[in-house]
Design a protein around this nucleic acid. Sequence first.
DNA 1: CTCCATACTAAGCGGTTGCTTAGAACTAAG
DNA 2: CTTAGTTCTAAGCAACCGCTTAGTATGGAG
Lengths: 209, 209
Amino acid sequence: MTTTREFELLDSAWAEVSPPAARRMLIAAAAAFAGKGYHATTTRDIAALAGMSPAAVYIHYRTKEDLLFQISRIGHTTSLAVLTGVPDADPVTRLATAVAAFARWHAEHHTTARVVQYELAALTGPHLEQVRVLRRRIEGVLRRMVLDGVRAGVFEAPDVPGATLAVLSLCIDVARWYQPGGRRTPEDIGALYADLVLRMLHAETPQAR
Amino acid sequence: MTTTREFELLDSAWAEVSPPAARRMLIAAAAAFAGKGYHATTTRDIAALAGMSPAAVYIHYRTKEDLLFQISRIGHTTSLAVLTGVPDADPVTRLATAVAAFARWHAEHHTTARVVQYELAALTGPHLEQVRVLRRRIEGVLRRMVLDGVRAGVFEAPDVPGATLAVLSLCIDVARWYQPGGRRTPEDIGALYADLVLRMLHAETPQAR
DNA sequence: CTCCATACTAAGCGGTTGCTTAGAACTAAG
DNA sequence: CTTAGTTCTAAGCAACCGCTTAGTATGGAG
C-alpha cells in the first residue's frame, strides 16, 4: 500500500483518473504490465496488487485491454506534453532541454514508459490507431526542433529524418535499460543525452546548461 | 513453407541446430515470439507454424521456455560474433565498422533481435544468468572500442561508460522500430548510425566508407 | 523377416485464463 | 424507514493453456 501511495504522489498524470479505486487499479495494472508484460499479467494479479477482488477490475474497465489502452493513452499524452512543454528559446537550447526532459521522463516514469513503448502490439485495432496518432505527433514535434536548428544554421544534419529517428530512439530506449537503483539518476541521463545529441548534430554546447 | 525456407537460407546462424525438424521448430518459434511476444504465443501456434502437431514441440525441446532460451542464446552469440568479427583497423574505422554491422544485424535479423532484446524477462533464472554473461561481453567489446579511441586521442568522450551505453542502446533499439518494407535498408541504417556515432564522439569521419 | 530406436500424432489431463452472474454492503435522497 | 444507485465480493463458467500419455509409422541393423 505504501508503494501505491508513493506512486500516486509521484505521478500527477494519473490525477485525472477517477474514482480513486479506478486510479489505484490503473496504477496497479501499469506496475504489473511493466514488470511482467501485458500477456504475462493476469486480471487476478492486477486486482491483488490493487487490493481488491478479481471482479472489481470489470466495474471500472470493460476489458483487460481497455486497462492497457488507458495506460498507453495517458502515458503517450503525458510524454507528448513533456516535449511540447519546453520553454521557447534558441534551437540549440530548445532541443537540448527537450531531449533532457524526454529522456528523463523515460527514466523517472520507466514503469509507464515500458508499457507505452513495448506493449503496443497488445492493443486492439481502433485503440492502436488512436495511439499511433499521438506517436506521430511526438515524432513530428521532435523533427520540427531538429529542422529549426538546421534552418537556423546551428545544426548540421545531412539526413534530418534519420537524425530525428536516432534522437527519438535513444530517448525511448532509456525505458528498457534504466534501473532505479543504478549509477545514474534520471537527471544525469537527461544531461548526458542532451550533450550527446548536440554533438551528434555538430552544435556548439551553450554555456547555459 | 516458402517463408520458412527463405529464413533458413538467409539465416546461417540456425545451421548448427539439428535435426532439421528441431531447426524448423526454432525458426517458427522465433517468428511467433517476435510477432506476438513470448507469452502471447502458444505452443500450438509454434507447432502450426512449423507444420507439425502440438506434441512435436516436446520431442526436441523440454519446455516452451527452453525454446526461448535456445533462440536467445544463439541470437546473443551471433550478435556478439558480429561485433568481434570486425577487421582490425584504426579506432575510428573499427568502431564505425562495428556500429554499422551491429545496427545492420538488428535490422536484418529484427525477428531474432526482438526476441533477444525484449523477452529477457521470460527466461528462467539459470538461463537468464547465462544470457547475461553474453550481454556483458557485448557491452565490454563495445566499451573497449570506445576506450581505445579515447586513449588514442581520436575520440572525445567525457563519460566513456555513458557514451558506450548510448551507442549500444541506439543499435539495440533498431530492432524495435525497424520494418522490412520501410524507407531505409539495413545497410542505410548501418551507414547512418556509424556516421552519427562518430559525430557523437567528435571524431573526424574517415574518407574510406 | 525380426528387433528396436527415433520421430511423430491423437487424445486428453489438470490447472489457469478472461470475464460473468448473483447478491451483499454502503451511501444518499425523499 | 424506504428506495435507488453505486461499488464491491464470492462463486463459477467456458475456453484455452503447457505438457503428458499411449500408440503409430518409418527406417536401419542383424
